[in-house]
């Protein structure tokens, strides 16, 4: 499915990005008439696998996309899903925009703060949970909605949330395709 031949990038030997991520990134080559087009999906892949994107990884992505590292940083800091500092194994993202707020999202956030003993945008000391209130997750019919890493949970109540948190595996797991679950 390669449309444009713009050369191939060889990852550094001591790359800070995991080989399985590189496999996916190299598959993006040839999709766009400019190499720069790969930047946002590439940042997403790295952010999903490594939970966050470090400066060193940004530098490598800059080489990969043939832009300057500052540009990569500018792009990375624009998007809310690309974290530039470490987050917990499970990033609990509670939607708090109108539809969810009408159906009790505030209650969920208060419940989580109390249960986990952390504030908004904070991580528990054991590095397991991060609480992130987010704006609309576009699943308004199932309000209130909570997204934990990649999975959506709809019509969540504090009790249901307790059950969900208890059912999460000890460590964040990756499925066979290397996607964070």
């Amino acid at each position: 499915m390669t449309r444009w031949d713009l050369g191939h990038y060889t990852p550094r030997k001591d790359s800070a990005i995991a080989p399985e991520v590189w496999e996916k990134l190299l598959r993006l080559e040839g999709r766009y008439p400019w190499r720069r087009g790969m930047l946002v999906p590439a940042l997403m892949e790295v952010a999903q696998h490594h939970k966050w994107v470090s400066r060193r990884q940004m530098e490598e992505l800059a080489e990969f996309c043939e832009v300057s590292p500052t540009e990569v940083m500018g792009v990375a800091t624009f998007y809310t899903m690309i974290y530039t500092q470490p987050v917990g194994d499970y990033n609990i993202q509670v939607c708090r925009t109108l539809s969810c707020a009408l159906c009790g999202a505030e209650r969920l956030i208060e419940h989580l703060k109390e249960k986990l003993g952390i504030g908004e945008f904070e991580t528990t000391p054991d590095g397991r949970f991060t609480l992130t209130p987010v704006e609309c997750l576009a699943a308004c019919c199932g309000a209130p909605v909570v997204q934990i890493n990649q999975d959506y949970y709809e019509n969540v109540t504090p009790e249901k949330l307790d059950e969900i948190l208890a059912s999460l595996p000890e460590k964040r797991t990756l499925n066979p395709k290397g996607e964070a679950r």
């Binding site: 499915m1 999709r31 766009y32 400019w34 720069r36 087009g37 790969m38 930047l39 946002v40 999906p41 940042l43 997403m44 952010a47 996309c65 832009v67 500018g74 792009v75 624009f78 998007y79 809310t80 899903m81 690309i82 987010v134 704006e135 609309c136």
Partner: peptide, 25 residues
């Protein structure tokens, strides 16, 4: 091709979406 966004409401606006597609803010 499927192009993934990275969390920005503004990218629903067509020219912002194109900027994002081209790897920019």
């Amino acid at each position: 091709y499927v192009q993934t966004g990275a969390g920005a409401y503004i990218c629903g606006e067509e020219t912002a979406l194109l900027s994002s597609l081209m790897g920019e803010r």
